[in-house]
Design a protein around this nucleic acid. Sequence first.
DNA 1: TGCCTCGGTCACCCGGAGGTAACCATGCAG
DNA 2: CTGCATGGTTACCTCCGGGTGACCGAGGCA
Lengths: 129, 129
Amino acid sequence: MQAIDPTAHSPGACQAREVLDRVGDKWSLYVISQLGSGTKRFNELKREIDGISQRMLTVTLRGLERDGIVTRTMYPVMPPRVEYSLTDLGRTLLETVGTFVRWAEENLDQIEAARARYDARAGEIEAFG
Amino acid sequence: MQAIDPTAHSPGACQAREVLDRVGDKWSLYVISQLGSGTKRFNELKREIDGISQRMLTVTLRGLERDGIVTRTMYPVMPPRVEYSLTDLGRTLLETVGTFVRWAEENLDQIEAARARYDARAGEIEAFG
DNA sequence: TGCCTCGGTCACCCGGAGGTAACCATGCAG
DNA sequence: CTGCATGGTTACCTCCGGGTGACCGAGGCA
C-alpha cells in the first residue's frame, strides 16, 4: 500500500482508498479477523496468524490502534500482559469487510478461471503469434 | 500489496486477501470506479484518473483484464481505438466495493480523529514521559 | 518534411513495505 | 547460574510497486 496523493480525487473512490491504505496491507485483515472472535493477547495473535513476524504484528497493531480500530490494554504485571480487542469502529469495519469476504468466497473461482484463460491465451500467442 | 503465501490461512480472511491483492493496489479502485459509469477509451481513463501514468494505467488494466474484471476491445483502425468496460463480475465487484466506500465515507472522520488523538498523546509522552 | 495523436512497450531508478535477527527488562523454574 | 516466557524495540537488508522518460508505427495535417 502507498501514501495518498492529496491532489488526486476520484470522487467516490478516494475515501475508500484511504481506508484501503489502512486495511489493505499484508496483515491488518488477519488481525481484525482474529480479534473478531474476542480479546486476544499478543502472543496469542502471533501464534494464530500464520507467518507473521513479531515486528509486523507490533507494527500492524500500532497502526490499527492509532486509527481507533483496536484498543490496547496493558497490565503492569510480570511477565507483561497486553490484551488487544476491537473497538466499536473496528467491529463495524469487520462487518463491512464481511461483505467483501463473502464476495471473495463467491467469486474467487471465477477470477482464477479468467486468469487461467488469459494466461493460456497469452502463452498461445507467444508460441504461435 | 504483496504476493500471497499459500501456506498462510486464516480461514475467512485469506480469500479476501487474494481479492485485496487484486483491488488493493494504488490504481485499480479508481479504474473500476471510472468504468462504473460506462465504457471508456484508454486516454479517456488517463485524463480522468488524476496522476496516473501511462505505464501504470496499462499495467492496471492488464491485471484487471486478466482477472476477468474488465474487457478490452480493440478496433484495428488508425489511430488505434481501444475500449475498456466492466464485465458482469466487475460490476458485482463495484457494488461490493460500494458498501466499503460508504463505510469509508461514514467513518473516515472517526479514524482521523482517533489518529489525531493518538499522535497528540504520543507527542505528549515523548515530551514529558 | 516535420510534428501530433493513440495506445502502448522498454529500461532504468527510487522509496518504502516487510522480513530477519539481535537485544532489552523482569521474574520464575530448574 | 542458566534458560525460558512476555511483549516488545532496533538495525539492517531485500524486493518490488510504481514513477519517469524515451521510443514505436501508421495516419493526418500543415
